[in-house]
Design a protein around this nucleic acid. Structure first.
Lengths: 139, 139
DNA sequence: GTCGGTGCAAACCTTTTGCAATCTA
DNA sequence: TAGATTGCAAAAGGTTTGCACCGAC
């Protein structure tokens, strides 16, 4: 180790976390949808605005936004991982086994503290409901 | 046409879903653990009883047992898929962010029907609590 | 000119599948 | 012997990473 680590001299080029057409398109795709989307779905929607957009950029951007707390991951047991914009307040999801779509739910029964064993520190929870949506139930 | 069997037509070879050392070891590994295990963990534990056991066999057996309702999948957001023996009654899980272990919880607040939108048919739910376990909380 | 962002392709990881060998009823 | 199970390796999906090029400050 001949040289000592330099301090971050980062103001030369473009600032980090810049707004780019790709990132705008990815965020727009998620805003347009009112339910969590898979990376593939995000790619397809965003490609309508930015041609040549690659899946790697979608993943990189999603990870970036997730780290910044702008997007949240939504994992449905038995389903593909999805992403949605954060900042909508605490809510949960309903997964329709018929059309495999995910719906956002309002409200939360909360109060799961009593389920935690003694000495455990409860920091959060995840709740997913399963069944059939209105349309699939009528079939 | 060949003669028709009068009793249960047991085929010539080994009956399907037979008990084998591999399957016994896999089931034993899950019984020994009091928390859901990942396929890799199951493989490592089962290999102590059956040398040369392959990961493919673990997956095949798990899928077989899952289809038969003997094991259940437990998916933790942000964690690897895990498997546990079924037949323990309805319960949920606590995921410790410190040691990344999964603990089984007793009881269930139930009654999530009111969260479902009108016309939706609720068939089931999945609940996961996050936080730190007793040991990790003392650190 | 620098440095971050992007696209492409290769690498990685997890899970599934094809196939020959093995084993049991 | 027939058919089921297994182990290995290859395949298949999904996600991440390396690298050269491009564009914004």
């Amino acid at each position: 180790m001949a040289s000592k680590p330099r301090k971050k001299q980062r103001r030369k080029g473009r600032p980090a976390n810049a707004s780019t057409p790709q990132r705008e398109a990815i965020r727009a795709a998620m805003e347009a949808a009112n339910s969590p989307l898979t990376p593939k779905e995000i790619l397809e929607h965003a490609q309508e605005h930015v041609e040549g957009l690659g899946l790697a950029t979608v993943y990189r951007t999603l990870n970036l936004l997730a780290q910044a707390g702008v997007v949240q991951t939504v994992e449905i047991p038995g389903g593909a991982p999805r992403f949605e914009l954060a900042g909508k307040g605490h809510h949960h999801h309903f997964y329709c086994r018929g059309c495999e779509r995910v719906f956002e739910l309002e409200g939360c029964p909360g109060n799961f503290a009593e389920l935690s064993p003694k000495g455990f520190n409860l920091e959060g929870h995840e709740l997913v409901l399963f069944g059939t949506c209105d349309a699939c139930g009528r079939r």
